[in-house]
Design a protein around this nucleic acid. Structure first.
Lengths: 340, 340
DNA sequence: TCACTGGGGTATAACGATAAACCTCAGCCG
DNA sequence: CGGCTGAGGTTTATCGTTATACCCCAGTGA
């Protein structure tokens, strides 16, 4: 495997000149540059990124740490990020944080973060303390939750507003018994707590009594858990006329559960999700959902990371992404009269 | 940011002793070991993986290169691989190969592969020559296609058999006009070509005339392309009674297209997909599909990679993963009589 | 007493790249 | 003709680890 000094020797120049050519530094004559590039090509030389990073601290790689690889929301996020970075000559590597109890901390270890020039960290499911352990000097942008160490740049999804929009929409469409699937109160400002809070607020504002029993907690935000829970719930309580699902993936399970119970969407029961996955356009009927503005999130996350890489001491930015409702077929098309 | 020599100084030992402690080498006394570990903890020292890799060639990181982050099939693969590797103390980073024209080659560049101890490469959509450029000495396992440079370890999905099973199943269930969505002949043994071949073979074997016009090519294997194409096709040709979709994702689009056309599944039209995504359990009705045995693939890919990392000269292995049919609701439950 | 062994450690030289300082010479000015 | 300048390079000193060789000393057997 050829090194820079192999190239230098073959081209009859010093190693430093090869490095300068490869990095586009100015102090090299035109024909020397050409000769070096020829030799590089001929030997099939490629730079050793570990060595470069050791000496210069740059690799051109950005890391994205997500809770799970197999959740479509993160796939979408990763794809967008990858495109955004590619246009500036960098690339993205994605790692998973919650594969195992031990793996969680390992993914956040400095050793692993260090291999990147900067890291975007989706903190869903991670604790305040886990994050707090990250060395402040390392460029990190946090994505998702509210209550995180303020010293980091952060981009929050407006969970409360999103959940409120969803719930208000269901109320507008005549729903009166709205179950919050995957909801709960985790004691801190987590996604679960905040979306549940938004669901409560919307009902309070409309003067609809909030029924704590209408929160359907879920141990995992998977389609199958949601399906089973919803099917069981509908069998017990036929008065339910709507579900607000904490994520679109959960909403998929909810739809299946409703179908299992022999009910129709949106005539018997309405459903709203959260995430605006591409998938939601292809359910039958299409899934009404909250769009968390992933494009906006990615754009601002990259900008924040670039700022921090350029200046590690700049003041941390806390941004909130806009959310909006996407109406499709799982909620009713027109305003329904308030229940009798 | 503390280095090994900071630790050594604070513990009153040599750098080498710190290294030996951290790597579990035997030549260290019990109390020295303890003292070093204490100091490591106190200073919050973490190893620099770039330096380690530069010197020793090991990082404990395995790479997975996939065509796209946002395809659920690869999310599933990545999640499985991650678990499999975590149990042996390594971890997975996922990169994307086809973000852009330039990005494609960059992802396969030695520079990037090099940052991993080994790489698993999903070659769907990559050309023979792209792969052929990879330095043979680097540990790589290829996933997916048939026609790849034989010097690499490879795990093939049995595309022909899978497509044959799908098509035979549709024929068994009474289908006579089966459209191959996303099919075509790319001139080499690609996923598209092979699955189309399986679809042809099944029909030939059953004495059903193969209609080339029944191949519906797709520029991108996305739900929306499939939906539009299928809707248009059904409007033109009402005699179609089944679709074999090249992937489950395409199948989702097909189902939506059929719905758009006002037809019912499986009564009017039957559908079979390929990939056995988790999603397929949650469509209404559930998606009949081909299971490519991802668990088997991952298990064998890791084993092959480990073999190659241990011995770079071992003979390349070519394995074929078993496939089987998963029957759900988009195909009819019982054997139908042959068409009149 | 002496060579020998092995446990516990240290000193030194890389791994491959780059930052920073330095060198060399042609051209030009005063 | 001496000194200055700037283009085009080169030399040197690292970055943080680890492989390798080596050292020291207590205990052992002859």
């Amino acid at each position: 495997m050829p090194t820079m000094s192999d190239v230098a020797r073959a081209a009859g120049v010093s190693v430093m000149t090869v490095s300068n050519v490869l990095n586009g530094k100015p102090r090299v004559g035109a024909e020397t540059r050409l000769r070096v590039l020829e030799v590089v090509d001929e030997l099939g030389y490629e730079i050793n990124l570990s060595a470069r990073r050791l000496r210069s601290g740059r690799t051109g790689a950005i890391g994205l740490v997500v809770p799970r690889f197999d959740h479509p929301y993160f796939g979408d996020l990763a794809a967008r990020l990858s495109s955004a970075l590619a246009s500036t000559g960098r690339h993205l590597a994605v790692e998973q944080s919650d594969a195992s109890k031990e793996g969680e901390l390992a993914a956040l270890s400095l050793a692993r973060l260090q291999t990147y020039d900067g890291v975007i960290l989706s903190v869903v499911g991670l604790g305040y303390d886990d994050i707090d352990r990250i060395r402040p000097s390392f460029p990190v942008v946090l994505l998702g939750e509210q209550h995180m160490p303020p010293r980091f740049d952060q981009i929050h999804i407006d969970n409360i507003t999103g959940a409120r929009l969803a719930t208000e929409h269901l109320l507008d469409r005549g729903a009166r018994r709205i179950v919050m699937v995957g909801g709960g109160d985790e004691g801190h400002a987590s996604m679960v707590t905040l979306r549940t809070r938004g669901w409560e607020l919307a009902q309070q504002e409309r003067g609809v009594p909030v029924d704590d029993a209408a929160v359907l907690p879920l141990d995992r935000f998977e389609m199958s858990s949601a399906r089973i829970a919803v099917r069981a719930l509908l069998a017990r309580d036929p008065s339910i006329d709507a579900f607000f699902a904490i994520t679109d993936q959960v909403a998929m399970g909810v739809l299946a559960g409703i179908h299992d119970a022999g009910l129709r969407v949106p005539d018997d029961v309405q459903v709203v999700g959260f995430d605006n996955l591409a998938l939601g356009e292809f359910t039958m009927p299409g899934l009404t959902t909250i769009d968390p503005s992933n494009a906006w999130i990615v754009e601002n996350a990259v900008a924040a990371l670039d700022r921090r890489i350029a200046d590690r001491d700049s003041a941390p930015q806390h941004l909130v992404s806009p959310v909006h409702l996407v109406e499709r077929g799982t909620s009713r098309a027109s305003r329904a009269a308030p229940s009798p």
